[in-house]
Amino acid sequence: MTEIKFSARGVNVYYGATHAIKDVDVDIQDKTVTAFIGPSGCGKSTFLRCLNRMNDVIPIARVNGDIRLDGEDIYDRRVDPVQLRAKVGMVFQKPNPFPKSIYDNVAYGPKIHGLAKNKTELDQIVERSLRRGALWNEVKDRLDAPGTGLSGGQQQRLCIARAVATEPEVLLMDEPCSALDPIATAQIEELIDELKQSYSLVIVTHSMQQAARVSQKTAFFHLGHLVEYGETGHIFTNPDDPRTESYITGRIG
């Protein structure tokens, strides 16, 4: 039985007067890829950002309900959001490398979290993270070149390497391929498949084909509600809710 990594109960999110997420209950499993699908504006990215408290940085956002990582309440006042985000890494829609060298992009997190005692350890973390990001062989001879000089797909893999450098337990990906061409997308999808051996991955995607290819579990969001959640194969071939079926067959979107 795969263990539960995140459990959410009765989660509501408000942006000012707008009720963006309505009473969401979900358990996200460890070492599994969970896809969030649904039409634009349905709340899937908003809910994703609850899992590492990124909504905290939006002044008008209010989150209530219970979200636990390994049984610990992540919204407890004693939880430091910076430490939480080292554990729950995030990769955004557009690749956003820092305006620093490839090396420094990856070394930044381990440095601020004190994960390396010396330069040798830092070098090892950088190499391991770039290997995990399937980028090492392409950049190992030019680690001091700027990260912003890489191609879009390479930049996104650099951002994945940067996210795994702090040894997170969960990786959140908010449409990580929407700015990439099909070849770069295929590379990222292959990488997601490898990363699930070590991490719990949650991916928001607009592409149902992508959700079907990379995930084992799928959650369908519609108008702020989590309509249906289950095995990806079941959601795509035999959904329980007519709204899920309408979305998957293209009647709503």
Rank of each mutant, 00 (worst) to 15 (best):
D123T: 02
N96Q: 15
A35C: 06
Q216T: 05
V126N: 00
A219Y: 02
K31R: 13
A61C: 09
T18L: 11
M54A: 11
A186T: 11
T249H: 10
P81F: 00
N96P: 11
N64I: 15
P99Q: 13
A179Y: 03
V170W: 04
Y14C: 05
Q209V: 15
D25Y: 14
D174C: 02
A86H: 09
E194D: 14
H225W: 12
K217H: 07
T249S: 13
R53K: 07
Y247S: 11
K44F: 01
L172N: 04
N12F: 09
Q155A: 08
A211S: 08
C177Q: 04
E127K: 15
Q187V: 03
K87R: 15
L171V: 13
L171G: 02
A211P: 09
A107Y: 01
A61N: 03
P97F: 00
N52Y: 01
T249R: 13
V106A: 01
I4H: 06
G89L: 08
K117D: 15
F6K: 01
R162C: 06
G10H: 08
R142N: 13
K94C: 14
P176V: 02
M54E: 09
V82F: 06
Y14A: 05
Q124T: 08
S198C: 04
Y247G: 09
T237F: 02
D141L: 11
T2Q: 14
G149V: 13
K119A: 15
T237C: 08
V214F: 06
L180S: 05
E169A: 05
G109T: 00
C42K: 01
E169T: 10
P81G: 00
S40Q: 06
F92C: 07
A163G: 07
V91F: 05
A212D: 13
S178I: 11
P59A: 09
L48T: 04
F36R: 03
Y75H: 06
A211T: 09
G41M: 07
C177I: 06
Q210G: 01
E127H: 10
I235Q: 08
D25H: 14
I74L: 12
P182G: 14
I188M: 05
R157Y: 04
C177Y: 01
I203N: 03
I37W: 00
P59Q: 11
V139N: 01
G133K: 02
G147N: 06
T244R: 05
H19S: 02
V204R: 00
L158Q: 00
D25M: 10
T2L: 14
L172K: 02
T148R: 13
D123I: 02
G38K: 03
M208V: 12
L172A: 01
G152A: 05
R157F: 03
L122V: 10
W136M: 00
D25T: 13
A165M: 08
V202W: 00
Q216D: 10
G147C: 08
A61T: 07
V227Y: 10
H113R: 12
N12S: 13
D80Y: 03
I102T: 02
Q93W: 10
K5V: 12
Y14L: 10
V126K: 02
K100H: 12
I235R: 10
D181G: 08
T237I: 06
T185F: 07
T148C: 08
T46P: 00
P176W: 00
R78W: 06
R85W: 04
Q187I: 01
I60E: 15
P95Y: 06
S200T: 14
F92N: 04
